[in-house]
């Protein structure tokens, strides 16, 4: 059973990592506009249709 303490310790550290990543994502504005990027990614980079 003692191994559980170790496992939970690890899982906790990983979870802290995910929490930090989430907080960073919110802070950097990724949740401010949830629509436009979905359209933007579909544009080609060099499109010069006449």
């Amino acid at each position: 059973m003692a191994v559980i303490a170790l496992l939970i310790g690890f899982s906790f550290i990983i979870a802290v990592g995910f929490l930090a990543a989430f907080l960073w994502a919110v802070k950097s504005g990724q949740y401010d506009d949830k629509y436009t990027p979905s359209v933007r990614m579909l544009f080609d980079d060099n499109d010069t249709i006449k």
């Binding site: 995910f18 929490l19 989430f22 919110v26 949740y31 401010d32």
Partner: peptide, 14 residues
């Protein structure tokens, strides 16, 4: 304001 709500949800879910 919305951002702070997201932070709180993140912390609570964690």
């Amino acid at each position: 304001k919305t951002r702070s709500l997201y932070y709180k949800i993140g912390v609570a879910a964690f």
